[in-house]
């Protein structure tokens, strides 16, 4: 079976979720507009790993019976182990920008900037969740910048600021970076098929470390692809109809 790019990314995310070196992810939450992270979570669950999934936008059997504020209350108490965030811009210290570029985004686009949708829960979730996996499919110098124009949520905080965790890793369409919060710096971990250290370097606006050996991101197995196309697709169709039709065709 030949994996689609989305399936490769979902499988790479699933492996980051299951990373034995990271604290266990017993309860994972998935926010708005995150079909690939949602697919990765369902893949982990349908592969038989004991994990509780709370998908904010799921209609059927949504676990939040106290409203959408319950996700944030759970996270505030430390009951959510892992969350996913992206960014219109992400920089080398793992700051994320969901606000926009150019003049302060409230000034609008007339100054040559681009307005992104807004920060959603990032300013809170990034700091209150023990593990965050950063995910952005587009890997280009305009997204991965030396310094974000505006910080929706900071990658690292001073020692006296209460914070449970930060980025574990950053997955893009080209590679996997690991994040070292002590040094506030990314290191290249895996490159996807067709990519090299040089091609990643050329597409990345921030500086990062490169270890002696950089592995190729392992391809999805036939078992993983069968799970994605069967039970995972079935779980996701109601919430992400457009995504599922594009990746897996009509139901």
């Amino acid at each position: 079976m030949t994996p689609t790019p989305e399936e490769r990314l979902a499988v790479a995310l699933a492996r980051l979720i299951l990373d034995p070196a990271a604290p266990p992810a017993r309860h994972i939450a998935v926010g708005a507009a995150s079909p690939i992270p949602a697919a990765a979570c369902w893949l982990v669950k349908r592969a038989g790993h004991p994990v509780r999934l709370s998908l904010l936008h799921r209609e059927e059997a949504n676990p939040f019976t106290e409203g959408t504020c319950e996700l944030f209350d759970l996270t505030a108490q430390g009951r959510i182990d892992l969350f996913f965030l992206g960014g219109g811009q992400i920089d080398g210290t793992a700051n994320i920008n969901l606000l926009g570029t150019g003049e302060w985004p409230t000034a609008g686009t007339k100054f040559g900037g681009v307005r992104f949708p807004g920060s959603f829960g990032s300013a809170f979730m990034y700091m209150m969740t023990p593990r965050t996996i950063l995910f952005r499919e587009e890997h280009s110098p305009r997204v991965l910048v030396p310094r974000v124009d505006w910080i929706s949520a900071p990658g690292v905080s001073p020692p006296d600021v209460f914070r449970r965790g930060t980025a574990q890793a950053l997955l893009t369409g080209r590679c996997v970076f690991r994040f070292d919060p002590a040094r506030a710096r990314f290191a290249l971990d895996q490159v996807h098929p067709g990519e090299t250290v040089a091609s990643v370097r050329a597409a990345t606006g921030f500086d990062f470390d490169v270890p002696d050996t950089v592995a190729e991101t392992p391809a999805p197995t036939d078992e993983e692809l069968a799970l994605l196309r069967g039970p995972v697709a079935a779980e996701m169709r109601a919430t992400y109809p457009g995504f599922c039709a594009r990746v897996w065709g009509a139901a």
Binding site: G67, T68, T106, A107, S122
Partner: peptide, 20 residues
């Protein structure tokens, strides 16, 4: 986006849990 660019609205950016 158009109203923001034209300065027709004032936007105050927040974060979800702050609203709740």
């Amino acid at each position: 986006l158009a109203a923001l660019a034209a300065g027709e609205i004032v936007l105050r950016d927040a974060t979800c849990p702050a609203m709740h």
